[in-house]
Amino acid sequence: MKRAIFAVVGLLACTTAMADALDDAKARGTLRCATLTDSVPLGYQDPTTREIVGLDVDVCKALAQHLGLKPELQGISVSSRIPALVSGRADVVAAALGYTKERAEQINFSAAYYQVPIKILVKDPAINTFDDLKGKRVSAIKSSTPELYARQQLPESSVVAFEDAPSAFLALQQGKTQGMAMTEPAAIRFHARAQNMHFLDQALHFEPNCLGIKKGEEALTQALDSALQTMESSGELQALWDKWYGPSTEFQLVREKKLTPLSAFE
């Protein structure tokens, strides 16, 4: 009897071990996708409908459709992106998630579906180069790649981390910091609200933005990469970019780099 029980337990353990996130998603019929809720135009609350909308939200919906699933969207903060994957709360994170080798030790990454420069927004007209920021304070979002690269590229500046973009920008407005590190698309909207500010010409980094997946979930990672490739080939990714960042928007940004395999950054 005991042998039979052990055999059943062993079989269940083996079945559990063989299960993966893609199988689980198919069983549920949903793709649990986490996006930002306070970052225009990636993921934010529409003031009229109160729904979360944006580029990454649309990408999540399209990915779910390509996988034959329904999107199950959830809000997330910058600092909780990786914990949400590690804990299994989300299947995929689409939330301005820049690839770094350090992060790749914790999670899987998809191909980069867009790339953007990380810039410094300043208020003082006398600040025009990184050297001008020596001994000064620079704000950034906590646990973001702008914070990481600001610390690397501006070793003689004091980088102050905030929980969200509005707080980092408010610090710059109030003179508590003399610069703000942020991806250029995200910072453009803040810049538009304060015409007395300008971007430094230098970029801290040119950031590949990818989907995040739990470490070891190769089947889901490959399925998402395949879906992204289909979306790129059909022009769907470009259409989503143009909808949120293109010439008819306030951002008017060109998508200079197309879908790029992760191997280009490793």
Rank of each mutant, 00 (worst) to 15 (best):
Leu42Met: 12
Ser39Val: 15
Thr48Asn: 09
Lys61Pro: 01
Leu69Lys: 00
Arg28Asn: 13
Asp56Ile: 03
Leu69Asn: 10
Thr49Lys: 07
Thr49Ser: 15
Pro71Asn: 08
Glu72Lys: 10
Gln45Phe: 09
Asp24Phe: 03
Lys26Thr: 10
Leu69Thr: 07
Asp46Met: 04
Gly54Gln: 01
Thr48Leu: 08
Gln65Lys: 12
Cys60Glu: 11
Thr30Gln: 01
Pro71Met: 09
Lys70Gln: 15
Cys33Thr: 03
Asp38Leu: 01
Asp58Tyr: 09
Ala62His: 07
Leu42Thr: 04
Lys70Ser: 11
Glu72Phe: 14
Arg32Lys: 15
Thr37Ser: 07
Thr30Leu: 01
Ala27Val: 14
Lys61Tyr: 00
Gly43His: 00
Pro71His: 01
Arg32Tyr: 10
Cys60Phe: 05
Leu36Arg: 01
Thr30Gly: 00
Pro41Ser: 11
Ala34Phe: 04
Ser39Asn: 14
Arg32Asn: 08
Ala62Lys: 15
Leu63Thr: 13
Gly43Pro: 03
Leu36Gly: 12
Gln65Arg: 12
Arg32Glu: 05
Gly68Ser: 00
Asp24Ser: 06
Ile52Pro: 06
Leu31Pro: 05
Pro47Asp: 00
Ala62Ile: 09
Pro47Asn: 12
Gln45Tyr: 13
Gly29Arg: 05
Val57Leu: 04
Asp38Lys: 03
Asp24Arg: 10
Arg28Glu: 15
Lys61Cys: 04
Ala25Glu: 02
Thr30Cys: 03
Leu42Lys: 06
Asp46Asn: 15
Asp24Glu: 14
His66Phe: 06
Lys26Cys: 06
Asp46His: 12
Arg28Thr: 13
Asp24Tyr: 02
Gly54Ala: 03
Leu31Cys: 06
Arg32Val: 14
Lys70Leu: 11
Thr37Glu: 05
Val53Met: 12
Gly29Ile: 11
Ala25Val: 01
Asp58Met: 07
Pro41Met: 04
Gly29Lys: 01
Thr49Phe: 13
Asp46Val: 10
Ile52Leu: 12
Thr49Val: 12
Gly68His: 03
His66Cys: 05
Leu63Ser: 08
Lys61Ser: 08
Ala34Ser: 13
Glu72Arg: 14
Asp38Glu: 08
Tyr44Arg: 11
Thr30Lys: 13
Gly43Tyr: 03
Asp24Val: 12
Thr35Phe: 09
Ile52Thr: 14
Gly43Cys: 05
Cys33Ser: 02
Val59Asp: 02
Val57Glu: 06
Gly43Asp: 02
Gly29Asp: 10
Val59Ile: 15
Gly43Lys: 09
His66Met: 14
Lys26Val: 00
Val53Leu: 10
Pro47Ile: 11
Leu36Pro: 01
Leu67His: 06
Ile52Phe: 08
Glu72Ala: 15
Asp23Pro: 00
Asp56Trp: 03
Pro41Glu: 03
Cys33Tyr: 00
Leu55Tyr: 15
Gly54Lys: 05
Leu67Ser: 02
Leu55Pro: 03
Leu31Trp: 07
Gly54His: 06
Gln65Asn: 12
Arg32Met: 11
Ser39Lys: 04
Pro47Lys: 10
Ala25Cys: 06
Pro47Gln: 05
Cys60Val: 07
Arg28Met: 04
Leu42Gly: 05
Leu69Trp: 02
Ala34Trp: 02
Cys33Asp: 07
Thr35Arg: 00
Gly29Thr: 00
Arg28Cys: 11
Ala25His: 01
Asp38Ile: 03
Val59Ala: 09
Ala27Met: 12
Arg28Leu: 13
